[in-house]
Simulated scan of single mutants.
Amino acid sequence: MSDDGGLWLLALGPAGATSLYWFLYRYYRNTDKSHAFERETAVDAKPVTGSDQKVDEVKGTRETRIRGDNVSAYRERVRRIRSDSS
């Protein structure tokens, strides 16, 4: 039969796609070579320090803007960085 000769070519497509997928998966994921942070890293936890200080209290949603915002003051929000070397 002459059809048997082309059967390997037909099977080459899915086999090639599967091997390419597996190669790319192993290359980019490389799970066997990755660093296991949870097992290999020691983290010493320390107590949290600091203080809480109540500044102000706003009840309800009557104010539509935040006091002291700088939305309209573009020049104050964004400053050009000047280099001293010029």
Score class of each variant (00 low, 15 high):
D32R: 13
G50H: 07
V55C: 07
D32W: 01
W8V: 13
A36R: 05
M1L: 08
L9W: 01
A42G: 05
M1K: 05
R39W: 02
L20K: 02
S2G: 05
I66F: 05
E63W: 09
R29C: 04
A17H: 05
T31W: 03
R62M: 14
D3N: 06
G13D: 02
K54Q: 12
G13S: 13
A36W: 01
T41C: 01
R75T: 09
A45G: 07
V71Y: 11
S34L: 04
M1R: 06
L24I: 05
E38D: 14
I66Q: 03
G13E: 10
W22L: 15
K46R: 10
S86E: 13
Y21Q: 05
F23N: 06
D52G: 02
E38K: 03
F37G: 02
R39Q: 12
T41S: 03
R82E: 13
A15M: 15
Y25W: 11
G5H: 01
L20D: 00
S19Y: 09
V55E: 15
Y28V: 01
I81Y: 01
S2L: 07
D84R: 13
D56H: 06
S19F: 15
G16R: 01
L12I: 14
S72P: 02
K59Y: 06
T64W: 04
V71F: 10
D3P: 01
G13R: 05
A45Y: 15
W8C: 00
A17Q: 04
W22S: 15
K33F: 02
I66K: 06
V71A: 14
D69F: 03
E40Q: 03
A15V: 15
V58W: 04
H35P: 01
A42W: 08
P47N: 05
Y25G: 03
A45N: 12
R82S: 04
H35D: 03
S51D: 12
G68N: 12
T18D: 04
D69Y: 07
G50K: 07
D4T: 09
